[in-house]
Design a protein around this nucleic acid. Sequence first.
DNA 1: GGGTTCATTCTACGGTTGTTGACCGGCGGC
DNA 2: GCCGCCGGTCAACAACCGTAGAATGAACCC
Lengths: 195, 195
Amino acid sequence: MTEPSARPTRAQQRLQSEERILAAARQIFAELGYERTTIRAVASAAGVDAGLVMHYFGSKDLLFARAVEVPADELPGGTSGEVAEALLTSLRRRLTDEPAASLALLRSMLTNADAADRYRAAGKPQLNQLTEAISAPDAHLRAGLLSAIVHGVIAERHLLRLTHLADASPEQIIDLLRPCFQTLATAPPTSGKPS
Amino acid sequence: MTEPSARPTRAQQRLQSEERILAAARQIFAELGYERTTIRAVASAAGVDAGLVMHYFGSKDLLFARAVEVPADELPGGTSGEVAEALLTSLRRRLTDEPAASLALLRSMLTNADAADRYRAAGKPQLNQLTEAISAPDAHLRAGLLSAIVHGVIAERHLLRLTHLADASPEQIIDLLRPCFQTLATAPPTSGKPS
DNA sequence: GGGTTCATTCTACGGTTGTTGACCGGCGGC
DNA sequence: GCCGCCGGTCAACAACCGTAGAATGAACCC
């Protein structure tokens, strides 16, 4: 018997090439965005020919779709306060190492309609969970604001690299944001009682 | 004497054409971003030939630079609370009618390095004023967070058009954000006393 | 072991884009 | 009234990009 890693079978090699292409695509899409990324550049970074990328993924759009596939980031349900804390935990993880797939989606969402749709779709479950947990007439707006804050902070840290945000520790950031999130997630005290 | 508007002089006509081109450029840059905007499309929208755009502005980059020129948005100084309120006022204005020049800059900042630089430069004075007003060791970070929130909300409302944010009234948004801004602008109570 | 499948490459085409230079015609000064 | 400047157009070039299709050679199945 031969070691499975000694000489990869054809199917293995195909998967391996696909994965190398996808990794290169994720990185370049995340760095340059959809429009400035060329199939040739992705192929070159993956060490293959541009034709192969087309052969495996069909088109640039389909390659992008595969590259930015990201698991829906579900929040554990609970009270509004607990959900706010869960959102902070999610934010802390994303502040340290946001995966390239998410960055690629973020980078392209303003200039590519398809990316914008995927971004909206990816954020939708979290948005719904937030809206549901915040029992208030303006829960929709509060959830939208929380989402906007999260993505604004991530974008300015990882994409724009504003020094004010890029140099700070995740703990420092979420500690400053915690009261904001709690306030936004908590219904006004006039009609609802906390906890 | 002839009415000055009856037949415009040559200099007037040039300025008029330049302004029409700039207006078209601002709108298209704001809608599509830098890369998807073509000089031909701008020229067509302005009712002129593409060559004229080059003739007047030199290159696409220079046209973009002229199109996104936006006056630095200065905040009136004061205590941290007053500055936070001024930032809210600025936000309210930008929520109703953000000028196309600013939207063009926002739209392109993630995919165009030059736009990113201009964005950073445009936000710098406001960022400095915020940092100065917030007397705390982490003033830099707090100012950065405030800026990130403002731009995140504007981007998701005007560029991404997330329904949660696009449908809300500016008053509702800034009322929800006010406690967040006050909290972020106010130094921790352990060492500083408010007002 | 022979025929086939398939991973991979090469070449090329059509379209778009930024940019250029020649050209035209009317306004402005003399 | 004439000449030159200048607003404006037209046609074209060179580069690049996404994409298609033929070609090749090695791996796989029977």
